[in-house]
Write a protein that binds this DNA or RNA. Structure first.
Lengths: 171, 171
DNA sequence: AATGGCATGTAAGCTGTTACATGATTTT
DNA sequence: AAAATCATGTAACAGCTTACATGCCATT
């Protein structure tokens, strides 16, 4: 996963140093993913030898080493972004982060896919609740469990509503 | 983390086998945590040597090995449940799962702690949005990023509302 | 008789964290 | 002058997954 994320970050900003990337994880993208510098630096070396990125040849005033995404790297990134979302992983937010343009067809695709996933998850949770907590006694018996099942259902409901209204705004 | 979860599961059900525990992760608790059998079996052995659990001495008809929580184990579990929630980790749902009784003082404590965490997170996200997306141009510039920031804020808002209404119901 | 689920265990490998290390620059 | 931040790297370790391995029992 990590190489795709580094690819996405470098692509978003045109050029980035390892240090800048590690700083990014303290801010916005840190909501969805984290990587420490000891993971980032070796991964960048691997990506160079795979030909996904290249060090910026421009003479730089600073001590940082900047990396650029290659043609191959751009293709790899687009391929990864186009891969269908899966139930596990939950890469929805992460992938959205790498889509800059409102008109990208990927945007609508991703939202629709996520809507499918959340809808089926929502139905699954509701049927579990019916099964596991059919009466008041079963709730009193495992009160914490019933609370978090309710919470999970409410979370899915809210996410579905947000996705639907976002789709509407995308027209 | 894993040993506490196994402790909580065994405590919830009085006695459990390794296989039963691994099955649990396919159902309800699988929403919040997962562990494979190759992790569970060695961990159970460690917990025996630590004196947290013990194999059920009763002659069992089945081939399964059942484990019981010890006195020490119960104390360890209660200690862990009582530890304040932290920003990272997100153990709220997991810990709730191990609280069976509606009248447990821990229940209210956990909900109030989580409310604090979500409230401060909510404020942080809102100030980030003001900072990063001050005008329409900045939104158009990183549309996917703005979407997921909006989503994160909405998610926190919804969680906060749920926690508040749950607190009211606990009264 | 063969397939699949029950039940337990070990081994290899990947991912990620914490700690160790170094040196330059900037701030106090 | 000292402390903090910038900047890059390596090493040791913890946690978890996948694959390997075995044997019993129930169903088809």
């Amino acid at each position: 996963m990590l190489p795709y994320i580094l690819l996405g970050l470098i692509n978003n900003q045109t050029k980035m140093s390892g240090y800048q990337i590690s700083q990014e994880f303290n801010h916005e993208i840190g909501e969805f993913w984290h990587a420490s510098h000891s993971q980032i630096y070796p991964e960048l070396q691997r990506m160079i030898s795979d030909g996904w990125i290249e060090p910026d040849a421009e003479v730089s005033d600073s001590k940082s080493i900047f990396y650029l995404i290659t043609f191959d790297g751009k293709n790899i990134l687009q391929e990864w972004l186009s891969e269908p979302l899966s139930e596990k992983d939950d890469l929805f937010s992460l992938k959205l982060y790498f889509i800059k343009n409102q008109d990208s067809p990927l945007l609508r695709e991703l939202v629709e896919q996520q809507l499918q996933i959340n809808s089926s998850h929502y139905e699954h949770l509701r049927s579990r609740r019916e099964l596991v907590f059919p009466d008041e006694a079963s709730i009193q018996n495992s009160y914490g469990h019933s609370l978090i099942l309710n919470r999970a259902i409410e979370r899915e409901r809210n996410h579905i509503n947000w996705l639907k209204s976002t789709l509407d705004n995308l027209e």
